[in-house]
Amino acid sequence: MLAHRTSYAIILVGNPRNSQKMGSMLSTTTITVAELPFSSTDHGLPASAESTDVMPSDLLLPSCKAVEAPQPALKRLLSESPRSLCLIVDAVCGWTVSVAEELDIFHASFSTCRAFGTSLWEFE
Rank of each mutant, 00 (worst) to 15 (best):
A108I: 12
D53T: 12
T30Y: 09
S7Q: 09
C64E: 09
I88F: 10
M25P: 03
A91T: 08
S119D: 01
R17D: 11
L74K: 05
R76I: 05
A66W: 10
I105N: 02
L87A: 00
A49F: 02
L85D: 05
D58G: 07
I88Q: 01
E35W: 07
L12V: 10
V67T: 00
G44P: 00
L87W: 09
T112A: 14
C113V: 15
E124W: 04
V99W: 02
G44I: 00
E35D: 09
S40W: 06
I105L: 06
M25N: 08
C113Y: 15
L103K: 08
V97G: 05
I11L: 08
L36Y: 04
A73D: 01
S84P: 12
P72T: 09
A100N: 03
R76K: 13
L103V: 14
K21P: 04
A91H: 02
T41G: 04
L26Q: 05
N18M: 12
T30P: 08
F123C: 10
E124Q: 10
G117C: 02
P16D: 04
S24I: 05
L120D: 00
L87M: 06
I88A: 13
Q20C: 10
F123L: 15
R76E: 12
I11P: 05
G23W: 05
V54N: 03
F106V: 15
Y8I: 09
